[in-house]
């Protein structure tokens, strides 16, 4: 039972990271109806920015861990958001009116560009960082197994919850949120009613990218490393999470993220680590067979 609880904690932490990335996929899908294949690589860039900022802050002699973390978070979010904005501007905006497959391939191309940009500019080797947040609590000790909750895990989950709260507020209460939801429904109508569609779409990419940057930083804190290839795997997992939750649905993305995180963790813990991704993908396929629009997706109404 203790072992189970430990895996539950680990799975929820991993799921939070996937969920943060998945939100970016689902937002972009909701508003422009395309799979942003480069989003996983935006997450990777976020990890790198966080790493480099951290390195600089430490080397100029800062020692207050909370201040460092806050600064790293802000810089990573801001710079990565600009990456998201630029990618949309260069690779997607010219194709907005186009056939459905063109922006998708453009996104795949952009994904190659970003991951190789990181490889060329920062080298191919894995970048390790020493643990920044140490310590933790023992929740329960049955003698042969102790359920641990580390401080990193607390930071990851708390940051995710706080950001989700802010994000939910933005989407449901602000002008931008209203514009975004209007554009999701009908861009032409939104434009006629005075919504700046271009800016709203840009903002969607900016917010999605900054949430991915948070995920990148959490990944760095939790696993203590980044590399140029991590965007691909994490991106596919997060996209899987978004689809599992029902693409276009924001709560669905978070739910899907948690589901994928839990599936992966439990499968590794009880069956085999090698097949954890196979398990996640298989469950995705099985869920979609029975719920073709995911867990929380709007069922597609067939208009005849």
């Amino acid at each position: 039972m203790d072992y189970f609880f430990q895996q539950l904690i680990n799975g929820l932490v991993l799921g939070s990271i996937y969920g943060l990335i998945a939100i970016g996929y689902t937002m972009v899908y909701g508003i422009v109806g395309m799979i942003n294949f480069a989003h996983g690589d935006i997450f990777m860039i976020g990890g790198f920015i966080a790493l480099i900022t951290f390195l600089i802050l430490v080397s100029i002699g800062m020692t207050m861990v909370p201040v460092i973390l806050l600064l790293v978070l802000l810089v990573a979010m801001a710079v990565t958001a600009l990456y998201g904005w630029t990618v949309e501007r260069i690779a997607y905006r010219p194709l907005r009116q186009s056939f459905r497959l063109a922006p998708m391939l453009s996104a795949i191309g952009m994904s190659f560009v970003l991951s190789n940009f990181a490889q060329v500019s920062q080298g191919a080797r894995v970048k390790p960082v020493p643990p920044i947040i140490t310590g933790g609590y023992t929740l329960h000790d049955s003698g042969n197994f102790a359920v641990q909750l580390s401080n990193v895990q607390i930071v990851v989950v708390v940051t995710t919850v706080v950001l989700l709260a802010i994000f939910t507020y933005i989407v449901s209460r602000t002008r931008f949120g209203r514009d975004m939801r209007a554009c999701e429904q009908d861009q032409t109508m939104a434009a006629l009613l005075g919504v700046d569609v271009d800016r709203t779409i840009s903002m969607t990419f900016v917010i999605g990218a900054s949430l991915a940057a948070v995920a990148g930083m959490m990944y760095l804190l939790y696993y203590g490393l980044v590399d140029f290839f991590m965007g691909f795997i994490a991106g596919i997992k997060a996209f899987t999470a978004a689809v599992l939750g029902g693409i276009g649905s924001l709560p669905g993305a978070m739910l899907g993220g948690l589901a994928i995180g839990l599936i992966e963790t439990f499968w590794s813990a009880y069956f085999s680590v090698e097949y954890k991704d196979v398990a996640a993908f298989s469950i995705l396929i099985i869920v979609l067979i029975f719920m073709p629009t995911g867990l929380l997706g709007r069922p597609e109404v067939e208009k005849v």
Partner: peptide, 21 residues
């Protein structure tokens, strides 16, 4: 060499913008 995938991805983006169909 190492810039190959970078250029390749960039060309893919440009080609799609040039001829989406």
């Amino acid at each position: 060499d190492q810039f190959r995938m970078l250029v390749f991805g960039g060309v893919m983006v440009l080609l799609m913008i040039w001829r989406p169909r």
